[in-house]
């Protein structure tokens, strides 16, 4: 996994507290992406098991969503993972090349009629595991704030 700390972020210029991953749409790479992001986020800090679990889960979720629902599994479309490192927290942005979606109309997967559905839990899980979640107006970028230790 190549991490490019010099890549220009759509939100802010690159710096030593920032890194980006520019990915092809390839679901087989999701696990490796998660490991790479976690390694960078937790380098030099003592993160709890819970903190690692939360970061790994939401990054896996957001990257997979971007590839499947955003990019429609089109291998020519890219996913940008943009990470800001702060002393006590990390902000992870994931952007796809899709049309975006309206996060306000995502159904609740814990409703009785949704409980045995195979899909539809991703955004719900991210919202509950991250400290803060926001989207751009188009709905093709998600930002997630998580603790770093």
């Amino acid at each position: 996994m190549v991490i490019d700390p010099s890549m220009e972020s759509p939100r802010r210029p690159a710096g030593r507290d920032h890194f980006s991953l520019d990915l092809a749409t390839d679901l087989s790479q999701v696990g490796e992406v998660v490991e790479a992001v976690a390694a960078c986020c937790f380098a030099g800090v003592t993160a709890t098991t819970r903190t690692r679990f939360r970061l790994c889960t939401v990054v896996a979720e957001a990257v997979a969503n971007a590839m499947v629902y955003g990019n429609g599994n089109d291998p020519t479309r890219r996913v940008l993972v943009d990470v800001e490192l702060h002393q006590d927290r990390v902000v992870v942005g994931v952007t796809d090349e899709g049309e975006g979606f309206d996060p306000a109309v995502v159904p609740d997967p814990t409703d009785d009629d949704m409980l045995e559905s195979e899909c539809g839990r991703g955004i719900f899980m991210i919202r509950r595991l991250a400290d803060a979640v926001s989207f751009n107006a188009r709905g093709n970028t998600i930002w997630m704030t998580l603790p770093r230790c």
Binding site: C56, A64, E118, C119, G120, R121
Partner: peptide, 17 residues
């Protein structure tokens, strides 16, 4: 197992069925 994403949970639902 370190973590499971929503598609993993979905797979478990499907397998259970």
């Amino acid at each position: 197992t370190a973590y499971i994403d929503s598609s993993g949970l979905g797979a478990l639902v499907s397998i259970n069925k």
